Amino acid sequence: MSEEPKNEADEPGWEVDPDDESGAAVVATVGRQLRLRREAAGLRAAEFAQAIGYGEDLVYKVEAGNRIPRPEYLDKADKVLRAEGMIAAMKQDVGEVRYPKKIRDLARLEARAVELLSYGSHALHGLLQTEAHARALLGTRRPTYFADELDRMVDGRMARQSIFGRLPAPELSFVLEEVTLRRPTGGTLVQRQQLERLLEVGEMRNVEIQVMPTNAWEHPGTGGRIQVLKFGDGSAVGRTDDEYGGRPVSDPRRLRILELRYGIIRAGALTPGESMALIERVLGET
């Protein structure tokens, strides 16, 4: 008995970001190759859709470069078109494009960084979040993400955490607000798993996690997040919520201001040892 074709609602694929020109070009090329191989095999779109178990409308959209095909779509297309792995290999081409462009750009910067300085005012840094915490946190956004968008955001955030396995390891410094430990984002179980993850990451030799106590209100972080990424060639990029329009800056004078603020915040926070003890205490109270 043949498998019922999936319709667009069942398996929508990922929408192509119209502002992502390079990503759209990759998806268009993959779609064109799929169409040429289908036509060379003598299959109409409807026949091909039936054979791979997806809707005809989705086939047209993938081939037109309007949808990013999922890995399983490419695997089935490879088998039906007897491409001997040539189509399945396209998964690598579209693998990055599935993530929003701003996440890909950030991931590339983090992959180059030899040092990262991060102060977060109201949420944990994405590199520290568990998948469940990230999903719950992103789910609070208004207007809400569609399910597909939310999946892409979470997947992209988790992919960035490959930074912890890099060699040589970059130096990573995080200052967290105490409230981010105590807020039960996603519920008690998710909160506990998140606290356990912080303790795990905090044990890494190249990572320092410090907590700013809630009662330490007088510090230069009241304007929002601060982040600085430093690279091996001596260059750097940083940003903060309350200045420069929140845009990344690389001017040395502006970077010095961000580093000055971060240094004062870091000095006023609990030491890494005290911070781990506080996280353990909050975990015990949860």
Rank of each mutant, 00 (worst) to 15 (best):
L229W: 00
I265G: 03
V80S: 05
V94M: 06
P12R: 07
G263W: 05
G186A: 05
V80C: 01
D57H: 07
P100M: 01
Q129V: 02
E63N: 04
A277S: 14
I226M: 05
L127G: 05
S275N: 09
E218C: 07
G23I: 12
A77S: 15
K6I: 06
E8Y: 06
A132H: 03
A169P: 03
L36A: 15
A41K: 15
H122W: 08
R44P: 10
P18S: 06
L137W: 08
A89G: 11
E47H: 07
M86S: 15
N66G: 11
L167D: 13
Q191V: 02
Q161D: 05
R254Q: 15
W217T: 15
R98P: 03
E203C: 10
E171K: 08
E149F: 02
L198T: 13
A46C: 04
P12D: 13
S121R: 12
I265S: 01
A45E: 14
M212K: 06
R35L: 11
E115W: 01
R205F: 02
S118A: 10
G156C: 01
L189E: 15
R192N: 03
G23W: 04
R152C: 06
Y73T: 14
V228S: 02
V94H: 02
P213K: 09
H125Y: 01
R37S: 10
E280R: 15
D148H: 10
L167C: 04
A216Q: 15
D242N: 15
V179Q: 10
L229Q: 01
V211I: 15
I265D: 04
D19L: 12
E218Q: 13
V80L: 03
P143N: 08
E3K: 11
Y54V: 14
L189Y: 04
E280S: 14
F231L: 08
D10K: 11
R160L: 03
H133I: 02
L81H: 08
V175L: 04
M158N: 06
G31V: 07
G245P: 10
A64W: 02
G273C: 01
V114W: 04
Y145M: 11
E96G: 14
G120P: 02
R141V: 14
D155R: 08
P100F: 00
E3R: 13
L150M: 09
T144I: 01
T271L: 05
G120I: 01
M212D: 04
G31N: 04
L116V: 14
P213R: 07
R192Y: 04
P272A: 12
E259Q: 14
G31P: 08
L255M: 09
G165I: 09
D17C: 01
A64S: 10
G202L: 09
T222S: 07
E84N: 15
G221Q: 07
G165A: 06
P5M: 12
M204E: 12
K6Y: 09
E178H: 05
E115N: 05
L74D: 03
A83C: 05
T140Q: 14
R141Q: 11
L124K: 06
L106R: 04
L58V: 08
R256Y: 06
A113R: 00
